[in-house]
Design a protein around this nucleic acid. Structure first.
Lengths: 354, 354
DNA sequence: AGTAATTTTGTAATCGATTACCTGAAATTT
DNA sequence: AAATTTCAGGTAATCGATTACAAAATTACT
């Protein structure tokens, strides 16, 4: 029953003794075709199990109806959620989503971009890798005239739209929340400062301290990779300080978790002795026995909006390159790891605060 | 600098005053072309920034070099990990991975299959939705002669390869482990029995009970959807029994977590009073303060092997349809929620056990 | 009826690359 | 020197669908 030899419009045209053009027009419901032939063609097409070969169409039209999404790893909750948002917005418009991973490696990133451009993709969505400094490979996308939309991790490139979350605000909100819980020596775990997202969270943190007249202690800020062990190690280091912190705002959830685990080992009470806030709102943060406060980046919405930006760009007149920057507002999810519920904590560092 | 008007082999042929055939052959390193022209063509192609239009190639060859992956939701850890495995195995072979979601809805599933077949996909990987009973839409894939590989959730269809995990064994191992911890009244949270994975886990559970001469109590087996609240509700119901269970083997991690949360509320000691084992080894299970024992399905390996099966099928002579069934061995990750560390628990139900 | 206007359908080029088959020239053989 | 190979490259068909332009068939109108 294998009909690998698929039916084409020529097969139909031969069978009906009409031209392929007529068949094509009938199938596309062209007004130039009489109702009777239209019906006949449609019926025959159905009978012969005709399927339009979209490759031929793509070649003719120059549109593949495929878009590429490039992320570091697809099995990270954040990225797969963004992709879900993109897929759900684009599928109804007839697009298919091709996924590519970079493994945080700029060379893979360049290869993936090239491979995608080769396949006549209609657009690219990407979150750059940590190791991306030089952006020539990305510039090529623009030079080709292929729409490009950054999400979350972007680079400043003229003519490229981007959908991000307000990381500065996220950092500010998290820090402000900690201050309002009575914390005064707030440590910060930052990430790779090559990425804007981390510098922005860091800046938000500093701005909140300033806003509330809280001194900034450089020794409380550390670069911590986004792994549990790194968080635990970072906390251990912090604990060697004479004056220990009474809060941690981490730019990631995994290392926040590592810090919490280490604190437990040290029998430090959370949130009484120290409050902890993470970033990303990974599913596990709310599942914990001690749920972790975190900043939600609304990834699925981010994907949906990135897709909308792309569609606008495609469907709008491509006379001028549109460069749209959408910044989403993050949401602080307050949970037990930092919620003192109004209870005033008699902590040394608070007494010291002016 | 927008060169949307991409260079074709004709542009090169015109510039060099040779035929397009020569250019094509030179680019493909055909032995019919002299070294000198080859070099010239290659150089010119580079200068003109030539990119092969793979759509044209695809149309000519009938191979799109795209495969489709159909899953319920891509932002579930299990599925995104499988997809990662597929992507990493297939990318080096020049394939691109298109992702599609079904939202556990058989109608979406059928639509996605049709859309993929329309685009001349070279193969389909899928995990069927919970609501898939009738499989006519899947049969169409085979009838078209398109390679199809099921992973995890499969249906019995002649000629379709499948890569799964040994769910029976997983269920058996989990239950056996609980028995060895001294548990004798083991409850089971099952899932939608329309899916083989759940019936197999259930069968594994029953087989283990039988093997160790432990009575099977129907009232301890419940259908529980894979949500936290469902797990909590199921536990509450179990707790209305005169004789309460001393262990739970859940076919999912989320509802196992829900049960644990409910047990905490009831101040039941885990693992002393009751042991809990989940299934899937979701990341959160090992992050908990009380880490949850679970069965790992090695999703990334599953994806990699599914891709290998596909490649074999494609590259092997397609004279006869190969139907390959690969069954992976799951891994039991024993954690605190069920690890009594050899301690004998003096529990009523144990005393009752013969 | 004869011509113009309109409707319906056909012809052939096109999208870009590949390739079976053919040709002309140089190299080799006898 | 004539005949035969070999080499390098050209011609044109092909993959399947669309569409500008041309042509035929039908209808309308005087």
């Amino acid at each position: 029953m294998k009909d690998k030899d698929k039916t084409t419009i020529y097969d139909i045209s031969k069978k009906l003794n009409v031209s392929a053009a007529t068949v094509s027009r009938a199938l596309n419901d062209s007004p130039k075709i009489s109702a009777s032939t239209k019906e006949l063609v449609l019926k025959t097409a159905r009978e012969m199990n005709y399927k339009q070969n979209r490759l031929a169409l793509a070649l003719k039209s120059g549109k593949s109806n495929n878009v590429g999404v490039i992320v570091p790893y697809i099995n990270r909750n954040f990225f797969s959620s963004v992709i879900r948002g993109i897929e759900e917005e684009l599928t109804p418009h007839g697009y298919h989503v091709i996924i590519c991973q970079t493994h945080e490696n700029v060379e893979f990133e360049a290869e993936q971009i090239n491979a995608l451009l080769d396949t006549q993709i209609d657009g690219i969505f990407m979150s750059v890798s940590k190791t991306t400094v030089n952006t020539d490979h990305i510039q090529k996308v623009i030079d080709q005239g292929t729409p490009l939309v950054f999400f979350d991790r972007k680079k400043e490139i003229a003519g490229v739209s981007a959908v991000t979350v307000d990381d500065f605000k996220g950092g500010f909100m998290a820090t402000e929340h900690l201050i309002k819980q009575g914390c005064r020596r707030i440590a910060h775990f930052s990430g790779d400062l090559n990425l804007e997202i981390y510098t922005n969270r860091y800046e938000g943190y500093k701005a909140a301290l300033k806003r509330y007249d809280i001194p900034y202690y450089p020794e409380l800020v550390m670069m911590v990779s986004s792994k549990i062990e790194s968080g635990a190690a970072a906390l251990a280091k912090l604990w060697e300080l004479k004056e220990k912190p009474d809060a941690i705002f981490s730019a990631g959830d995994h290392n926040a978790l590592g810090a919490i685990q280490e604190l437990r080992r040290k029998n430090v009470k959370i949130p009484d002795d120290i409050c902890v806030v993470g970033f990303s709102n990974e599913p596990f943060t709310k599942y914990m026995e001690l749920p972790i406060t975190s900043v939600d980046q609304t990834p699925q919405i981010m994907g949906k909006i990135a897709a909308e930006v792309f569609l606008e760009q495609i469907e709008g007149k491509q006379t001028l390159t549109i460069e749209k920057k959408v910044v989403l507002t993050p949401e602080l999810c307050i949970r037990a790891s930092s919620d003192r519920k109004g209870k005033i904590v008699n902590h040394a560092s608070i007494l010291k605060a002016k």
